[in-house]
Amino acid sequence: MRTEPRLRVARVRPDFVPKAVRHYLDHTAAGTSIRALARAADVHASTILRQVRRIENRRDDPLVDAALRRLSEHSDAASLSQQEPCMTKTPRTTAREEQQRIAAECSRALRRLMETGAVLAVAKDMEMAVVVRDAPDGSTTRTAVVGQDVAQALALNDWIATDDPDARIVKYRVTAAGRNQLRAFMANDENRATGMAEAPASFDHARVAAPAESPLNGLARRRDKDGKPFLSSALVRAGERLREDFELAQMGPRVTQDWDSFLTAGTTRTHSGASGNSPAAADARVKAALADLGPGLADIALRCCCFLEGMETTEKHMGWSARSGKIVLRIALQRLRLHYDSLGQAGKMIG
């Protein structure tokens, strides 16, 4: 009687790895035949073959190639049996936390990449990638720092793509798949905020509204009566600094904390020199900055810089007259810039 060969699969399979990539790793790293993979997936062998060829053709992308090499290096086909789930030395709780971290970081990066003129810049031999955006005055503003593992997850899932993979500094832009995935992340965040989500952030698609561009970007393109930008690059950077900490703080266990309640109840002086990229440190820095601004200015900074609320909506919520919000916002950003300048190196963007 003929015995079917045992299905061998790659050892490391993080949840963010797409199915096609898993099949590619199972075939190239674990040595599983195309036919065996097709039987296990209940598809025709030609389907698996097309997936393998497509992933192989994507290895010109430096992020995709680096991700595949990293995953292949951790493969251990002999230790796995047919149909058994992939196991690592990492405890399940830690693996889930890592999945949540990757999902949160991907969501943060995609939000930034949705902004006009934003790209993810990746240089060889650099541990971190950066999201940069062209400013109206021709300068470049850095808006986020992204770890290589997160950048690789974005590329591996086709959420970002580049037209020039051989450049010294490779620039990636968000794809249609990336926009759809951001909607999924946002839907998950909304469910979690209402207590409806118990599972880790999903990598599936969802249909919710796409995020808006920061009001700061629109105001920076406007000109005042003297022909100068209504918001200077320095003021925009101050607002981006606040948003960076706000987004990092949202990754912590208090992701659903009520910031509106924090503001309307008044501000409390908090230590502003907390350093590091941890959610707790970022949370402390946000509260310190808002406390320095005080009620009113803190409200508009939080709404426009962090919640990306439009001017008309903010003016309505605050009970202000039309076209007065942008003046108050500029004053808030001027105060915010002074706050970060007073912190010295600790007040600069992270990374």
Rank of each mutant, 00 (worst) to 15 (best):
A346T: 10
G319C: 10
S81C: 07
S81M: 08
R303Q: 10
L235D: 13
A36W: 03
E56A: 15
V236L: 12
G276A: 08
G273Y: 12
K225Q: 06
V132D: 10
K316C: 08
H23V: 05
A346Y: 05
S72Y: 03
D137F: 07
A77F: 08
A144E: 12
T268F: 06
A135F: 15
R237I: 12
D166A: 14
N180K: 14
P253H: 03
A103F: 01
G178N: 04
G319V: 10
P91V: 02
E312N: 07
R8D: 02
L120H: 07
T93I: 08
S214R: 10
D283C: 05
P253Y: 03
R335A: 10
A206T: 02
S107M: 11
A234K: 10
R111T: 11
T162I: 05
A153P: 09
D42Y: 11
M126G: 00
A284T: 11
R179Y: 04
R11S: 13
G218C: 06
Q345I: 11
Q99L: 07
S46E: 14
A249L: 03
R269P: 02
H23F: 06
R50I: 02
T3Q: 10
E309R: 15
A210L: 13
A210T: 06
L80T: 11
A167H: 09
R35W: 01
P85I: 04
F262A: 12
G296Y: 02
E309N: 10
T3N: 05
S342W: 00
T116R: 14
V150Q: 00
R8E: 07
